[in-house]
Amino acid sequence: MTQLSSRILGVLLHALLVLRRWGQGVLLCLAAVSGAHAQTAAKGDWPQRPIRMVVPFTAGGGSDIVARVLARPLSQELGQPVFIDNRPGAATVIGTQYVVRSVPDGHTLLLSGSTSFSINPALRKKLPYDPARDLAPIAIVARSSLALVGGKDTPWHSLPELIAAAKAHPGRIRYGTFGPGSGPHLAGEMLAAAAGIRLQAVPYRNTGQLAVALSAGEVDLGIEVAGALAPLVNAGRLHALAVFGAGRSGTLPGVRTLAEQGLPDATFEAWFGLAAPARTPAPVLDALSRAVTRAMDDAAVQANLRAQGMDPVTVGPEAFRKEAESEISRYRVQADRAGISLD
């Protein structure tokens, strides 16, 4: 081997040794960064920027009401602004999918009704995500009854009158919902199945559109969270025929439940929960759970929710998950019985 070849070989060997040491250094640095990241989360150095609370409905509905009541006390607990991001569409699929695909660092959350967590997976086999797998439940924070209302000029002012008219004109009575697979849609089909009638569902984007449609006679009935409809009922613009909950609504105490009127199988309770993307670090989820609990313990927050027609609750992650799973099983049976198919 020539002297030049020996020198080249020596240079190559030295370069390989340097690369090896450099690679080991990079691995050590990556491990250190990863460890520091975990320690940061464990030490509670989260959140580091404003938190986005995605509501998969337009402003003014039940989920939006709950989100806006919760945002301020949650911001105070976490030391960062919490802002509402309304992303409506496809019976909450658009907004929910946005959260599922977000970075799981606790800075993007989902505040939605049971439509996102139990109704959609019960009625849709082709969801682009699995809520049980792709979302980490934090807490159920409120419950509310849905109300069945008619427009000011709707000719029936009682549930028996409505049922008699629906039997006389099958499929001609229309009720407004927030789209196929939404809570009001399922509740309407449960009512129809229990009463032995056929109704026609018509989708609207929000409570305001539904109220206008009822006033104009575009639809005969509307189904929405009782708290959102109560001001319109109390003002005489709508009249209430029934509430779907197991008990009467605090905002419409004079309106009887469907169970009280002989239709217990149509009972439906709306609830609202907060969740994060799956794979959000456990310390962050724990911090969120504690912050939500403290926020919901505030008497002013509870009073605000009750004034909006909501019952404040704090149901933890495991009970949240079990409730959603139980409802999925129940709603699948009811959807099959009512012939509801959304795929």
Rank of each mutant, 00 (worst) to 15 (best):
S112H: 07
A276D: 12
P155G: 10
A165W: 01
K125E: 14
G217P: 08
A335V: 00
V141C: 06
G181V: 02
A32C: 06
R52P: 10
S118D: 15
A132V: 13
A195Y: 11
T207F: 03
V11L: 14
I84H: 05
E77R: 14
G62I: 04
V284L: 11
D336V: 00
V103Y: 00
G217H: 12
P180E: 05
D311Q: 09
P128S: 11
L111M: 13
T40N: 02
A228M: 05
V18D: 00
L110G: 05
A303G: 01
S326T: 09
Q39D: 01
D298G: 01
P131N: 10
L285R: 13
D134H: 14
W22S: 14
G245E: 04
D85L: 06
P137N: 09
A213L: 06
G247N: 04
L16A: 11
N86Q: 06
G44W: 03
A192T: 13
A59K: 12
A319I: 01
A235Q: 12
D286F: 02
A324W: 06
L238H: 09
A136W: 05
D45M: 07
P104R: 08
V313T: 10
T96C: 07
V202M: 15
V69Q: 15
R133Q: 15
K43G: 04
L285K: 09
L146G: 00
T314N: 11
A259N: 03
V99D: 04
V149L: 01
R290K: 09
T40Y: 01
P137M: 07
T2F: 10
G309L: 04
S326F: 07
V54W: 03
V243A: 05
N234H: 13
A216M: 14
G196T: 11
I328N: 11
L232W: 12
A299K: 15
P128M: 03
I94L: 08
S34W: 08
G339W: 08
P184H: 05
